[in-house]
C-alpha cells in the first residue's frame, strides 16, 4: 500500500454525501503507483499503510477488496527473525509496524499463518513486544530505546488482540500512563510533555485495554477533549492549533471511551470531515483544500463511523481502531 498523497484534494465545499465508491477505488489504486517518487519516500510507513487501507475498506463495507493471499505474503515478508515486524521488507523490526501487522492479520483472520509458515507463531511476536518494556512500565519502539506512549498503547493493543497480555507488567504500564497526566487533565507523549489529543488517545486507550479507566478524571478530561472542537466543527490536537480530520478519530474515540462523545456537536464534526473528501477521485485530506492521503482517509472514515454515519460499518473505539465485528469475535470467550 503506497502512501503517495493526492492526486485529489479535499473539495472544501459543504457536502452532505459520503462518496464511498470513490474512496474504495482510491484505496484500491494506491498500490499501482510505484513509479512515483513519494512511494519510495514513504517506505518507512508501508505496513501502517496496509493497515490504514485495509481497515478503511472494511469500514466502507468492502472487506474483500485487497487480495488476501498477497496481503499475507507482504505482511510476513516484513517480519524479522526476532518476531517483530519492520515497515517494509528489510527494515528493522519496530513496535509501530508490529502492531499494524497484528491488526492486519487479525482483520483477515490469518494469525495462524505465523505458525504455518514456520515463523514461530504468535508467541514469538508477543515476546518481541514484551522485550521492549522498560523497568518503569513504559515501552520502547525498538532496541534503540526511543520511548513514548504510542509504543505502550501499541504493545497493549497488539497483546490483547493476541490474548497474550500476561507477557507484560500491566500495573507498571498503567502507572507510567498516570505519570503522563498534565495539569489540564489531558496527557502527553511522555511524562512532562504537553497535552496532545493523539497522546490522550494512546493513554486512554491503554487504560481502557488494561481495564483501568476508573483512574481517569472523566469530567476534566472530557472538558479538555470537547474543547478541541472549534468553529469549523473540526477538532484540533492542541489549543490554538488548526483542525485536522484525523482528530475526529483521536478525540472522538477518546471521548467515546470515557462515555462523553455526546459532549461535542457530531453534526458539525461530520460536516467538517465531509468537506475534507475528494468527491471525484476519492480519499480524504487533513483539512479542506489539501491533498488527500490514505492515513487521513482511514481516520476520517473511522471518525465518521464513530458518529454512526449512515452506511458505514461500526468501528471499535476501545480495543483497537478496527471493525467491531472483528474485535468482538477475536476477544470473545
Amino acid at each position: 500500500m503506497a502512501l503517495v498523497s493526492g492526486p485529489g484534494r479535499g473539495e472544501g465545499i459543504p457536502d452532505s454525501e459520503l462518496h464511498s465508491s470513490k474512496h474504495v477505488t482510491y484505496i484500491k489504486n494506491l498500490d499501482t503507483r510505484k513509479d512515483e517518487l513519494e512511494y519510495w519516500l514513504t517506505e518507512h510507513l508501508r505496513l501502517n499503510g496496509v493497515y490504514w487501507g485495509l481497515t478503511a475498506l472494511h469500514i466502507l463495507g468492502c472487506p474483500d477488496t485487497l487480495p488476501r493471499d498477497q496481503t499475507i505474503d507482504f505482511v510476513l515478508s516484513c517480519q524479522s527473525d526476532n518476531g517483530g515486524f519492520g515497515a517494509a521488507p528489510g527494515h528493522d523490526a519496530h513496535m509501530l509496524y508490529t502492531v499494524s501487522a497484528v491488526q492486519i492479520l487479525i482483520t483477515i483472520d490469518a494469525v495462524d499463518e505465523l505458525e504455518k509458515r514456520g515463523r514461530g507463531g504468535k508467541e514469538k511476536v508477543g515476546s518481541f513486544i514484551a522485550n521492549l518494556q522498560n523497568a518503569d512500565g513504559s515501552f520502547m519502539g525498538d532496541q534503540w530505546g526511543e520511548t513514548d506512549t504510542r509504543f505502550l498503547y501499541g504493545a497493549l493493543n497488539a497483546l490483547s488482540l493476541l490474548r497474550l497480555m500476561d507477557l507484560v507488567d500491566v500495573p507498571k504500564a498503567v502507572a507510567h500512563i498516570q505519570s503522563c497526566e498534565n495539569l489540564d487533565g489531558a496527557y502527553g507523549i511522555r511524562p512532562g510533555a504537553e497535552s496532545h489529543a493523539g497522546q490522550v488517545f494512546t493513554c486512554i486507550g491503554a487504560l481502557a485495554i488494561a481495564g483501568r479507566l476508573d483512574l481517569v478524571n472523566k469530567d476534566r478530561l472530557g472538558a479538555w477533549l470537547s474543547e478541541r472542537q472549534i468553529e469549523s466543527g473540526g477538532f484540533n490536537g492542541r489549543p490554538e492549533k488548526l483542525a485536522d480530520a484525523c482528530y475526529s478519530w483521536w478525540v472522538g474515540s477518546s471521548l467515546a471511551m470515557i462515555d462523553r462523545l455526546h459532549w461535542i456537536d457530531g453534526e458539525k464534526l461530520a460536516a467538517f470531515v465531509l468537506q475534507c473528501q475528494d468527491p471525484d477521485a476519492g480519499g480524504f485530506a487533513d483539512r479542506p483544500g489539501n491533498m488527500v492521503d490514505v492515513y487521513h482517509t482511514h481516520f476520517s472514515l473511522a471518525g465518521l463511523s464513530l458518529l454512526k454515519f449512515n452506511g458505514l460499518e461500526e468501528i471499535d473505539a476501545i480495543n483497537s481502531c478496527m471493525p467491531k465485528a472483528i474485535t468482538a469475535k477475536c476477544l470473545a470467550g
Binding site: 518503569d136 498503567v174 502507572a175 507510567h176 498516570q178 505519570s179 503522563c180 497526566e181 498534565n182 495539569l183 496527557y187 502527553g188 511522555r190 511524562p191 512532562g192 510533555a193 483512574l215 478524571n217
Partner: peptide, 20 residues
C-alpha cells in the same frame, strides 16, 4: 523517581485533586 507531568501524577495512592 520516574518523571511525571505533575508531582505525584504517577502515584496511584495520591487523590486526583492532590496531584500537582
Amino acid at each position: 523517581l520516574p518523571d511525571a507531568g505533575m508531582v505525584n501524577a504517577g502515584d496511584l495512592s495520591t487523590a486526583p485533586t492532590e496531584k500537582g
